[in-house]
Design a protein around this nucleic acid. Structure first.
Length: 587
RNA sequence: GCGCUCUUAGCUCAGCUGGAUAGAGCGUUGGCCUCCGGAGCCAAAGGUCAGAGGUUCGAAUCCUCUAGGGCGCGCCA
C-alpha cells in the first residue's frame, strides 16, 4: 500500500521535473511516506515537499500544491490534503483497507512474509555461552533475541543459518575440568581445599558424582600429592588465578593426558547436553554447533594469521605476534600469539569468522553480550585488513538483564555458582512469558528483570493480553457453533463494506500494517517491534469486542465481522510465532 | 584517567533512521457484565524527553559540552 503511494508521488515528481519546476537530480529513493501518527492527518503522510523545497526554490506549501495537482487519480485514495508546514496527507478509501482481510485469510501463515531478502545467505550466531555451566537468565535474553532475529530474517526471505559457537578449547574449560576432578576427589575421600577460582555450582558435584559412578577410584590421586608445593590461594593471602593455574597443570600431570582428557570431555559433553536441552525447552534451535577446537586443531588458525600477516598489519614485539588494529581505529594493537606460543582468544575468534566467510554468507550477525563491545572494533579491523568489507559483520550487543529479587539486585556468576538458570525461569513463569518479556525491550536498553514480579504477577505480563485476544477469538467461533450459527467466508468477503464502525476501520488499518512491521523489524534487526505491534493489535481487538457483538442475526454483517476477527487471529498467531510464543485456543 | 553506551510520566518501557499536540503498560482515582471469556473495556490525573548550547522550515531523535548510571580498557576467555 505504501509502495503504491510512492509510485503515485514519483510520477507527480517526474512530471514536475519535466516542467523545470524541480531540478532533475532529485533522489527518487528519498521519497518518504509514513503512516500518519494522528487520525486527523489521514492514513499516510509524506514530507517530500519539505525536503525538496530548497532545491525547487519554492516555499514548501507551494511545492506541495504543485505536487498534489499532478498526482494521478487512484481508486484507493479518497482525498489528498496539504497540512502544516507542507505535509501531504493521504486519506485512503475503505476499499484500500478492506482488501487486507481476504489477503490475510488467503495467505494464512504466510501473511507478512516477503522476499526482500532474495534468498541471500545470512548467518546468525547467538548464545555461544561457554559450556562451563548451565544457561542462566542472563543468557536467555541473547537466546530469545537471536532466535527472533533469525526467524524475522527468514520471514522476509533470507536463507538463515543459526549457529552456536562452542568455546571448548580455552582456559575456562580447563578450570571446569579441574573443578570437576577436585569434587571427584572429595567424593573418593581425597579432598583438598576447593580453589576460590574454581566453579562452585552444585552441578559440578552432580557431574563429579556421575564420573565417580562410572570410573570408581580410577581417577583418584592422593590429596597430599595434589597440593604439594602449590602457590597459596587468595584466602591464604595468595593469588587465586595462580592457584587455579597450578592446580590445572597438577591435574594434567597426575592424571596424564588421556585421563585428563576424559574428565575434560565428560564435563563438556554433560554440560553441552544440558544447554541443548534448556534451549529446546526455550523453543530455540541452532542448525550448527561449531566447535572452537575444529579451528584450533586444524590449519585454520595458521591460515587466518597468515592472511593477516600478508596484509602487512602484523608485527613482532616482546616475543609475541601483534595485529596492528590501530591502523583501523581500534584503541590499541592486539596480540595474536602470546610469548608462550599459545594463540589468544581473539586469534581463534578471527579464524572462526574467516571460516564463516568461507562458507558463503554475505552477511554475518553476531549476538554478543554487552561486555564484549570492545571486541567489535578489533574484529572489524581484522576484516578490513584482509580486504573483507567490515559491514558484512553486524554485531548486536545485548545488554545484561539486571536481576532483582526482593527489591535487591542479584549478582550472577557462573564461577561462584550463584545464578538463576534459564531452566528454572521457564519452569516458574513459562516459556511464552519469558520469550515475550525478553524480546519486548530493545536489546541495547538495560533491562530490569524483577523475578518476584515475573513469578507472582504473571497475569500482568503483556504476553497474556495478546494471547487472550487470540483465545477470545477462538472462543467466539466456539460460541458460534454452539448457537448453531454458520460462517461463510466468501459471503463475508463480499460484504466487507458493512464494516463501517470506527473500531472496525482501526482494526483493518492495524492488520494492514503487519507486513510493514515485519519488514521494519527484520531490516533493523529489532524484534522488539513485534511485541509492541501485537500489543496494539490485541488492544484494537479487545476494544472492538467490548463495543460490538460479532454473532449478530444478519448473516452478511456476521460473516464480514467474523472474517475480520479471523484475520486478526491469524495475524496474532503469525506474530507470536515469530518471537517463539504460542497462540493458545484456550487459556 | 581513556573508550563505548545509556538517561523519556511515581515504576518498567515505546517513539517507525529529523516531522505536526511525546505514547503504552503497571500503579493511583472513577466508571462498564441479564449480552460472543472481566486475563477485558472506558475515562481522569501524571512530562522542563537528565541539563546547557548548537545545526534548520522543524530536534526526544543529529553535533559539542556538563552531570549521572552500565560496560570495557590482560600476552584471560
Amino acid at each position: 500500500m505504501k509502495q503504491r503511494l510512492c509510485k503515485l508521488l514519483a510520477r507527480a515528481l517526474a512530471d514536475l521535473a519535466n516542467h523545470d519546476t524541480l531540478p532533475v537530480g532529485y533522489d527518487a529513493a528519498a521519497i518518504h511516506i509514513e503512516r500518519a501518527r494522528r487520525k486527523g492527518h489521514g492514513d499516510f503522510a509524506s514530507n517530500v515537499a519539505l525536503t525538496l523545497a530548497d532545491r525547487a526554490s519554492l516555499p514548501p506549501r507551494e511545492l506541495a500544491q504543485a505536487i498534489v495537482e499532478r498526482l494521478p487519480a487512484s481508486d484507493f485514495v479518497d482525498q489528498v490534503e496539504i497540512a502544516g508546514p507542507g505535509f501531504i496527507n493521504f486519506f485512503l478509501s475503505r476499499a484500500a483497507f478492506e482488501a487486507v482481510v481476504p489477503d490475510v485469510l488467503e495467505a494464512g501463515d504466510a501473511f507478512g512474509r516477503s522476499d526482500i531478502g532474495a534468498g541471500k545467505k545470512v548467518q546468525v550466531e547467538f548464545v555461544s555461552a561457554n559450556p562451563t555451566g548451565p544457561l542462566h537468565v542472563g543468557h536467555g535474553r541473547g537466546a530469545a533475541y537471536g532466535a527472533a532475529v533469525a526467524d524475522l530474517l527468514q520471514a522476509v526471505g533470507f536463507e538463515v543459518q543459526r549457529e552456536y559457537y562452542v568455546n571448548d578449547a580455552g582456559r575456562q574449560m580447563d578450570i571446569l575440568a579441574t573443578s570437576i576432578w577436585l569434587r571427584y576427589q572429595e567424593l573418593s575421600g581425597e579432598a583438598v581445599p576447593f580453589p576460590a577460582s574454581g566453579y562452585r555450582g552444585d552441578y559440578i558435584y552432580d557431574i563429579a558424582g556421575q564420573l565417580y559412578r562410572q570410573h570408581g577410584k580410577r581417577l583418584q590421586r592422593s590429596a597430599s600429592e595434589v597440593v604439594r608445593d602449590l602457590p597459596l590461594d587468595i584466602s591464604e593471602g595468595g593469588d587465586a588465578e595462580a592457584r587455579i593455574d597450578a592446580l590445572i597443570s597438577r591435574a594434567k600431570t597426575l592424571l596424564g593426558e588421556s585421563q585428563y582428557r576424559q574428565v575434560h570431555n565428560y564435563g563438556l559433553e554433560t554440560i553441552l547436553a544440558s544447554i541443548r536441552q534448556d534451549l529446546e525447552q526455550f523453543g530455540v534451535h541452532h542448525d550448527v554447533w561449531f566447535f572452537e577446537r575444529s579451528v584450533t586443531q586444524s590449519s585454520a588458525m595458521k591460515d587466518a594469521i597468515e592472511r593477516l600477516r600478508a596484509s602487512g598489519h602484523v608485527y613482532n614485539k616482546d616475543a609475541a605476534l601483534w595485529f596492528r588494529s590501530t591502523d583501523y581505529q581500534d584503541e590499541k594493537d592486539r596480540v595474536l600469539i602470546k610469548n608462550d606460543g599459545q594463540h589468544t582468544y581473539f586469534a581463534s575468534d578471527f579464524a572462526y569468522h574467516i571460516n564463516k566467510l568461507g562458507r558463503g554468507f554475505g552477511r554475518l550477525i553476531d549476538i554478543w553480550g554487552a561486555d564484549h563491545h570492545g571486541h567489535v572494533p578489533r574484529m572489524k579491523a581484522a576484516f578490513s585488513a584482509i580486504g573483507e568489507d567490515p559491514a558484512k559483520l553486524d554485531v548486536l550487543l545485548v545488554q545484561f538483564a539486571v536481576l532483582y529479587r526482593g527489591g535487591k539486585k542479584l549478582q550472577m556468576s557462573t564461577r561462584s555458582g550463584e545464578f538463576v538458570t534459564l531452566h528454572e525461569l521457564c519452569k516458574e513463569i513459562g516459556k511464552d512469558a519469558a520469550r515475550f518479556f525478553y524480546v519486548m525491550r530493545k536489546c541495547e536498553q538495560h533491562m530490569d528483570f524483577d523475578l518476584d514480579l515475573a513469578k507472582s504477577q504473571t497475569a500482568d505480563n503483556p504476553v497474556y493480553y495478546v494471547q487472550y485476544a487470540h483465545a477470545r477469538i477462538c472462543s467466539v467461533f466456539r460460541q458460534m457453533q454452539e448457537k448453531k450459527l454458520t460462517h461463510n467466508r466468501d459471503n463475508g468477503n463480499a460484504h466487507l463494506d458493512l464494516l463501517t464502525e470506527s473500531h472496525e476501520r482501526d482494526l483493518l488499518v492495524a492488520l494492514s500494517r503487519y507486513p510493514e512491521v515485519v519488514e521494519s523489524a527484520a531490516t533493523a534487526l529489532e524484534p522488539h517491534q513485534i511485541p509492541h505491534y501485537l500489543r496494539g493489535l490485541a488492544n484494537g481487538f479487545h476494544t472492538y469486542y467490548n463495543a460490538h457483538t460479532f454473532l449478530v442475526d444478519s448473516a452478511d454483517l456476521r460473516d464480514a465481522r467474523l472474517n475480520l476477527i479471523a484475520a486478526t487471529r491469524q495475524v496474532i498467531s503469525n506474530g507470536l510465532k515469530l518471537i517463539g510464543v504460542s497462540a493458545p485456543e484456550k487459556m
